[in-house]
Simulated scan of single mutants.
Amino acid sequence: MTSVPHPAIEVRELSIAIRDEQGNERLMVSDISFRIAAGETLALVGESGCGKSLTAMSLLHLLPQPQVRLHSGEIILAGQAVHRLGKKQFRKLRSHRIGVIFQDPMTALNPVQPIGKQIDEVLRLHRPELARRARRDRCLELLKDVGLPAPEARLIAYPHQLSGGMRQRVMIAMA
Rank of each mutant, 00 (worst) to 15 (best):
H6S: 05
R136G: 02
V100Q: 13
T41Y: 00
H96T: 12
R127D: 09
F34N: 05
L42A: 06
L63R: 08
R154Y: 11
S95L: 13
L60P: 13
G51I: 07
T2S: 06
P64M: 00
E121A: 10
G116L: 13
K92M: 03
R127I: 00
P105V: 01
I76P: 13
E129M: 02
H61A: 08
E10G: 07
V112Q: 03
G165Q: 02
A43T: 14
R169C: 09
Q22K: 14
E13I: 00
G79Y: 00
S72R: 11
A81N: 12
P114K: 01
I76Y: 03
F90R: 07
N110S: 13
L109C: 08
Q118Y: 06
R135F: 00
A157R: 03
L70N: 03
A173I: 12
T2G: 07
E74Y: 02
G147P: 13
I75E: 09
H6N: 15
A43Q: 12
Q161K: 08
M106G: 07
R124F: 04
A108P: 11
Q65N: 04
R84C: 02
A37S: 13
R84P: 10
G46T: 06
L155E: 14
N110C: 11
V112S: 02
R127P: 10
M1D: 13
L77I: 02
A134T: 02
N24H: 15
A175Q: 15
V146P: 07
S48I: 01
D104L: 05
G23Y: 01
A175V: 10
A43C: 11
G165L: 04
I32C: 06
P5C: 01
G49T: 03
M57R: 15
D145F: 10
L77N: 04
R97A: 13
V11R: 07
R133A: 15
I101G: 06
